[in-house]
Design a binder for these strands. Structure first.
Lengths: 154, 154
DNA sequence: ATTATAAAGTCAAATAAGGTCAGAGGTGGA
DNA sequence: TCCACCTCTGACCTTATTTGACTTTATAAT
């Protein structure tokens, strides 16, 4: 049984897809009611799955007439990419982050679908098991290497 | 006398066979309960019998809604390059070997040129530096993962 | 202005998975 | 018999999700 968080994610993705300008606006309380969960779980989903790294901007407003707005934004890809890669302080990459990033890079057309699959193949699952504690560091190295390879070819 | 590990293996093989897309998803805790063993024995079975060398990709997720997913990738090829990957005794792959292999796989049209470049980007140079002595083992894991990913999509 | 009401945000604890590793226990062949 | 090589177990670890008490901010009503 998939988690509730995932169901909420899927629902949001779907309605974003359906909206013509890739913007969706909603009430936190209503959504949490629909999915019979506490309101703060909506924040959890937003914080873990609709991050800027994954290409989303979330705005909100409290109080009467409050709302949540999720906007999917395209990136100025190469600049942002280089920035991300150049950010030396970011030395590790979790599996989740990696997946989000790859999905986005494919959506942006930076990588083809098959390339994306290839990347997911090495970045996720038990493939890096041997690397143990260094797994997340290595994953970052691999991601860098692949993005750089691709940049060079363009 | 068949071991419990073998019984679990047989069971998994059977349900993978029965599933129409060769994918099976399950709860570790449930399975271990069915076979009255500790949960970690499931990992033992997966690690010893459902490896990439044997054509399986295993994914998992922890936490609420967690799961194990086993994907079988059919390796029915006369292609001896690919067969080599199925050779369990071959556990490491040097940089030179990797390059040669990728080049041939691209020549044969198994991988596209850009995919090949992506692979070389990951398999060669200092990218795996972090893995130290395990570098060659890890390189083999990566190669297997990529080939399986590609086979999976064909 | 003050107070009431209607949102949404934060954060940490509780819960629900799966992962790792080292050592104990078997088993079969030389 | 003895050794090498499986299997099996349990203690401990890491990660993801769910919940709820408390906080903050906006609007509406007096």
């Amino acid at each position: 049984m998939g988690s509730k968080a995932e169901a909420i994610e899927q629902y949001l993705l779907k309605i974003i897809e359906l909206s013509d300008d890739h913007i969706v606006e909603l009430r936190r309380a209503e959504l949490s009611y629909q999915f019979s969960c506490v309101p703060s779980q909506i924040n959890y989903v937003l914080n873990t799955r609709f991050t800027t790294a994954q290409g989303y901007v979330v705005e909100s407003r409290r109080g009467g007439g409050g709302y949540l707005r999720i906007v999917k934004v395209p990136i100025e890809r190469e600049d942002d990419l280089i920035k991300m890669l150049a950010d030396k302080s970011k030395q590790d990459l979790s599996e989740q982050e990696a997946k989000g990033l790859v999905i986005r890079l494919v959506e942006e057309g930076f990588f083809s679908k098959t390339e994306g699959r290839l990347m997911l193949g090495v970045l996720s699952g038990g493939v890096l098991a041997r690397a143990k504690e260094e797994k997340d560091l290595l994953r970052m190295d691999l991601m860098r290497a692949m993005v750089l390879t691709k940049l060079r070819e363009k």
